[in-house]
């Protein structure tokens, strides 16, 4: 089984993003960047499948500037065999990312595509489903457990109120939930090895896709609402506050 995994370069989850003073966008120019945490789960699962002898090759793909090479090196250190960087100057919307991934899918012909369920920057949660729809392939979103069956996967999905288990034939597109696994720590030798693994670069223009913008960011602002916290002195005060809240 050949697996294609996606690796998005995002602001590190521990960085608190700031809005630019003119509100045109967030200011992340000097922020620490990381591999999207949900993509780490997707990659970890692919690596586990390879370790179990169920997968033969794992190809990581990232879309963006040359800086995404760092992200792909992380993916390679995590156990991917080779990587593809689709070089693009623009920060594409999910539908265009899905179109690019479709082109890579057609080129690579993997049996399984694994992605994180959402990226922690735009929180869109769209690419997996869009790609599956475009390719008319089975989809399993929010996967928290994957078992390999005969040319198929049995997947437990996290849904509202509990879980659902479905079986999807391969090829399929799967998105990883946080609870799918616990990504391992990368050790120094793996980082060294990753430097020797190949990264193929493809200019997005070479793919010949129509990737026009479908929306525009008007403005962004701080979404945080801090409150004036009244400190309570006793349990009695606490009870009164709770009773008042209960009746509201």
């Amino acid at each position: 089984m050949k697996i294609l995994v996606c690796a998005k370069r995002v602001v590190d989850p521990n960085v608190k993003v700031r809005v630019k003073t003119d509100h045109s966008d967030v200011d992340i120019e000097h922020s620490k960047m990381s591999l999207n945490p949900f993509d780490e789960n997707a990659i970890e699962e692919a690596v586990k499948m390879k370790e179990a002898g169920k997968a033969s090759e794992i190809v990581a793909v990232s879309i963006g500037s040359l800086k995404c090479e760092d992200t792909l090196r992380t993916a390679l250190a995590r156990g991917c065999d080779r990587a593809i960087l689709v070089e693009a100057a623009e920060n594409y919307e999910p539908i265009n990312i899905a179109k690019i991934l479709k082109a890579i899918y057609l080129k690579e012909q993997p049996n399984l595509i694994m992605l994180g369920k959402q990226a922690i920057d735009d929180d869109a949660n769209q690419v997996t489903q869009m790609l599956a729809g475009m390719l008319d392939l089975p989809q399993a979103t929010f996967a928290s457990k994957i078992e390999i069956a005969d040319n198929a996967l049995v997947i437990r999905r996290e849904i509202d109120g509990g879980t659902e288990t479905i079986k999807v034939n391969l090829p399929a597109v799967v998105s990883a939930d946080l609870y799918l696994n616990e990504p391992r720590f990368i050790k120094l030798p793996q980082l060294m090895q990753a430097k020797k693994k190949p990264i193929e670069k493809i200019a997005v223009a070479e793919l010949g896709l129509e990737l026009s913008r479908r929306s525009r960011l008007i403005k962004v602002y701080d979404g945080e609402v801090k409150k004036q916290c009244k400190q309570l002195a006793s349990i009695d005060e606490l009870i009164n506050v709770i009773k008042a809240g209960q009746e509201a």
Partner: peptide, 20 residues
Amino acid sequence: SAGKDLLPRIAGILELSQIS
């Protein structure tokens, strides 16, 4: 979970963007 699973797939088929 149902809406998030379904609507982007429709978007992919119609090659439309979605606002989440």
